[in-house]
């Protein structure tokens, strides 16, 4: 599904990703963990095409399509979805209008019939219920005045409606209390499917108690330095990330 090869990327001429490799098969859930500043958020931003993130080398293919050849909206049409760490407030654009525009753009790009307004409203209402957001949110400005937890739930709501092939959840657990975390996890789990893959980017293991990953990777200093199964998350929780630094220093000395 996703193949990232030797990805090197920089922000404001500072290199953040330094040769990242990752391969994800359909239906898999991969967790990416790591200390602050390791490049976790950069990965999502680079893959989704945010301005100011420059790819210096390497490639990323989603089902064979070179992501870096595509505009951000084309990447979305190809099936990529990024749940933002800091969802953006857009006063003056209602949530429903926003969802409608997004769904219609997807339908158009993929040459399928968009849902009728009534059908769309029905889907949006169902998604609202699934993530425990009041229906009144659909009429309000996108994320306008939402609490941190509401914003994160709105990201999941969008994911449910857009049904991506590959979703990247960028620190979706940050700022969530345990109840909101469970709601978010439930929403995400309901989206797990044989033809859909997930990347769960997180600093803490907590979220992974609710969204069980197939693989866990440790990202440090712009590279994946260790990969393993779910047990790796527990190790990290017990040991923290300090060993990374020591390990590297040991490596340098050797």
């Amino acid at each position: 599904m996703l193949k990232i090869n030797n990805l090197q990327a920089s922000v404001e001429e500072k290199q953040i990703l330094k040769g990242l490799n990752l391969e994800i098969n359909p239906g898999e859930v991969h967790a990416i963990m790591g200390p602050n500043g390791a490049g976790k958020s950069t990965l999502g931003n680079v893959l989704s095409g945010r301005d100011g993130y420059e790819v210096n080398e390497g490639s990323a293919e989603l089902d064979g399509a070179d992501l870096f050849d595509l505009e951000p909206e084309e990447r979305a049409h190809a099936g990529l979805f990024l749940a933002f760490q800091y969802p953006v407030e857009i006063p003056g654009v209602s949530n429903l209008e926003f969802l409608k525009a997004a769904i219609e753009a997807h339908a158009k790009a993929n040459d399928i019939e968009p849902p009728s307004s009534a059908e769309l409203l029905k889907q949006a209402k169902e998604a609202c219920k699934a993530v425990d957001l009041p229906l009144a949110f659909l009429k309000r400005g996108v994320n306008e005045g939402f609490s941190g937890g509401e914003k994160k739930r709105n990201e999941i709501l969008q994911m449910m409606l857009l049904k991506p092939k590959l979703a990247i959840l960028d620190e979706t657990d940050s700022g969530l209390d345990i109840d909101a975390l469970q709601v978010v996890a439930k929403g995400v789990n309901s989206m797990r499917a044989a033809d859909r893959s997930l990347i769960v980017v997180t600093h803490y293991q907590r979220l992974l108690d609710y969204i069980k990953p197939d693989f866990v990777h440790v990202l440090a200093d712009g590279k994946i330095v260790k990969s393993g199964g779910p047990e790796l998350a527990h190790e990290l929780e017990a040991q923290g990330y300090a060993w990374l630094e020591n390990g590297e220093k040991a490596g340098e000395n050797a």
Binding site: S48, G49, R50, D51, E71, P72, E73, R75, A76, H77, F81, L82, F84, P87, V88, I90, G92, V93, E97, F98, A101, A102, A105, H106, A109, V142, Q158, L162
Partner: peptide
Amino acid sequence: LYYLQSRGIGKEEAQIML
């Protein structure tokens, strides 16, 4: 603008929405 685009809305349309 990036947020809208990341949801599949074309740049021109996103600009008009904003």
